[in-house]
Amino acid sequence: QCIKQELICKWIDPEQLSNPKKSCNKTFSTMHELVTHVSVEHVGGP
């Protein structure tokens, strides 16, 4: 049986000017979605 898990993006953008810096905190249900999000939204490139 599949256990529902919540994956949370903890990326902190080093360019943020606010202190304390905020992490992204978007939630995902699969590791694939999380990896895709980080690749596209934070790292950039294909």
Rank of each mutant, 00 (worst) to 15 (best):
H42D: 00
K21H: 11
V38N: 11
V38I: 10
M31S: 15
C9E: 03
K22C: 05
S39C: 10
F28I: 01
W11H: 11
Q16G: 06
C2G: 14
D13R: 04
M31E: 15
C24L: 00
G44F: 05
H32C: 08
V35N: 15
K21F: 11
I8H: 11
E6G: 07
S39W: 06
E6T: 02
L17P: 13
T30G: 08
E33L: 02
C9K: 04
V40H: 08
F28D: 00
V43G: 14
E33S: 04
P14F: 01
S18K: 14
H32V: 07
E33P: 01
F28E: 03
H32Q: 14
H37G: 03
P14L: 04
L34N: 02
M31V: 05
S39K: 13
V35M: 14
K4V: 03
P20Q: 06
I12E: 13
N19Y: 04
K22M: 09
H32P: 13
H37Q: 00
S23H: 13
W11M: 08
V38A: 08
S18Q: 05
P46T: 02
E41L: 04
E15Q: 04
E15C: 08
G45W: 03
N19H: 12
F28T: 03
I8C: 08
T27C: 08
S18T: 13
V35I: 11
L34M: 12
E6M: 00
N19V: 11
T27V: 12
N25V: 06
I8N: 15
E33R: 02
L7R: 12
T36Q: 12
S23R: 15
E6N: 06
Q5W: 01
G45A: 11
N19D: 09
C24S: 01
P46N: 09
T27E: 14
G45Y: 03
Q5E: 14
K10G: 08
L17Q: 08
L17I: 12
I12R: 07
N25C: 02
V43Y: 15
K21N: 15
E6Q: 07
E6C: 03
V40Q: 12
E33H: 04
H37F: 00
N25I: 04
L17A: 12
D13S: 05
Q16W: 10
I3L: 06
I12S: 10
P46S: 09
N25W: 04
K22I: 13
E15G: 08
H37D: 04
I3S: 03
V40W: 03
S23C: 11
C9G: 02
S18V: 04
V43A: 12
K4C: 04
I3E: 05
P14R: 07
Q5A: 10
G45M: 05
H32I: 07
S23I: 12
V35R: 14
P46D: 11
I3G: 05
N19E: 11
S29L: 12
V35P: 01
E6A: 05
T30A: 13
F28W: 00
H32A: 13
V35W: 14
C9I: 00
N19A: 08
E33N: 02
V40I: 10
L34F: 10
S18G: 04
I8K: 15
E15M: 09
L7P: 14
E15I: 12
M31A: 13
E15W: 07
S29Q: 13
P20V: 09
I12T: 11
V38G: 09
K10N: 15
Q16Y: 07
V43R: 14
Q16N: 04
M31N: 15
F28M: 02
C2R: 09
V43N: 14
P20N: 09
S18W: 06
Q1Y: 02
P46H: 14
T36M: 05
M31L: 05
V35E: 15
N25R: 14
C2D: 13
H42V: 00
V43D: 14
V40N: 12
M31K: 15
I12M: 09
H42S: 01
G45K: 08
G44S: 09
V35K: 15
C24F: 00
H42Y: 00
D13H: 07
C2T: 13
V43K: 12
L34W: 10
S29R: 14
H37W: 00
K4Y: 02
T30M: 01
Q5Y: 03
C9T: 02
H42C: 00
E41I: 07
I3N: 03
I12W: 08
T30F: 06
K21Q: 13
F28S: 01
K4E: 12
Q1T: 13
Q5R: 10
G44C: 10
H32L: 04
E41Y: 07
T36Y: 06
T30S: 06
K21W: 09
L17M: 12
S18C: 10
W11I: 07
P20Y: 03
Q16H: 10
Q5C: 02
T27W: 06
C24R: 01
D13V: 04
G45Q: 07
S18Y: 05
T27H: 04
